[in-house]
């Protein structure tokens, strides 16, 4: 299974109403076809009443295997269904690469 599929599968544990996993490795200084930089947008009722830090820890925990392996950058956007509605279904863009990572 590739990393994109593994991330998508593991984040089902958060019972997302909406889930978007984007491989942003192409934006970075890594070989073509790499799976090193990802952005995930997770909309779930499980985040209700939880601070951002706690929400991000939930996502990181689901993906601990990937984060200790090939994935070294993970942009995380977490919203409850109400927050997602307020944001009109948008998450922030990731910053551009500055070239520091070679691996």
């Amino acid at each position: 299974m590739n990393t994109h599929s593994a991330i998508t599968k593991k984040l089902q544990a958060l019972r997302p109403d909406y889930l978007d996993v984007v491989n942003e490795s192409y934006m970075h200084n890594v070989p073509e076809g790499s799976e090193s930089h990802f952005k995930v947008t997770v909309v779930s009722g499980e985040f209700e009443g939880k601070m951002l830090l706690a929400r991000h820890r939930m996502v990181n925990q689901c993906l601990s295997e990937e984060l200790s392996g090939t994935v070294h950058a993970l942009a995380i956007h977490t919203m409850t269904p109400d927050e997602w509605f307020d944001k009109s279904g948008q998450s922030n863009d990731s910053p551009l690469c500055l070239g520091g990572e070679k691996s």
């Binding site: 990731s94 551009l96 500055l98 520091g100």
Partner: peptide, 15 residues
């Protein structure tokens, strides 16, 4: 961070 505030080596760190 990766790098310094003046010369960040990663977009996330720079931001």
């Amino acid at each position: 961070m990766k790098g310094s505030p003046d010369f960040p080596q990663c977009g996330f760190s720079g931001r």
